[in-house]
Computed example of a mutant assay.
Amino acid sequence: MEDKIVLMIIIASCILPLVILGIVFINGKGSSLIAGFNTMSPEKKKEYDTIALCKFMGKIMFALSFSMVFWVLSVAYEMNGLFIIGLVLFVGIVIFAIVNVNTDNRFKNKKLS
């Protein structure tokens, strides 16, 4: 029983930073925390709509934290199927985010175009 509680606390402690990042990003802030974007030159950063990018990443953070809730539930109810559902969701969300950000210039600043 104690092992279950410890594991649930560990998973929940991984969910909490994602929720906090989601709150920061959804408010259009924290662009320096986005990998790849923070290494761009200031001139290159001006080409992108940072608020739209941050809001998108905020939604992704919330989706990832939601998928991790299935992991907590799988421990609580001892159902491996819930873990698999959460893992498939997690991987699917990550793939979706990578493809969405890197295709079709979705986050290019439309004012400069």
Rank of each mutant, 00 (worst) to 15 (best):
E2M: 11
K4C: 12
I5G: 02
I5P: 03
V6R: 12
L7E: 11
I9R: 07
I10K: 14
I11V: 15
A12L: 14
C14E: 11
C14P: 04
L16R: 09
P17R: 03
P17A: 04
I20S: 02
G22Q: 01
I23Y: 11
I26C: 11
N27I: 10
G28P: 04
G28T: 05
G28Q: 07
G28L: 09
K29D: 13
G30S: 10
S32R: 05
L33G: 08
I34F: 06
I34A: 07
A35M: 15
G36Q: 03
F37P: 05
F37Q: 10
N38F: 07
S41V: 08
E43R: 02
E43D: 14
K44Y: 12
K45P: 01
K46I: 08
D49W: 02
I51P: 03
L53G: 05
F62M: 01
F62Y: 06
F66Q: 03
V69I: 15
V69T: 13
F70E: 01
W71A: 03
V72K: 01
S74W: 06
Y77K: 11
Y77T: 14
N80I: 13
N80F: 14
N80V: 11
L82N: 04
F83S: 08
F83E: 05
F90S: 06
F90L: 06
I93C: 03
I95F: 06
I98Q: 10
N100V: 10
D104G: 09
D104I: 02
N105I: 07
R106S: 02
R106A: 05
K108S: 14
K110D: 11
L112A: 14
S113M: 14
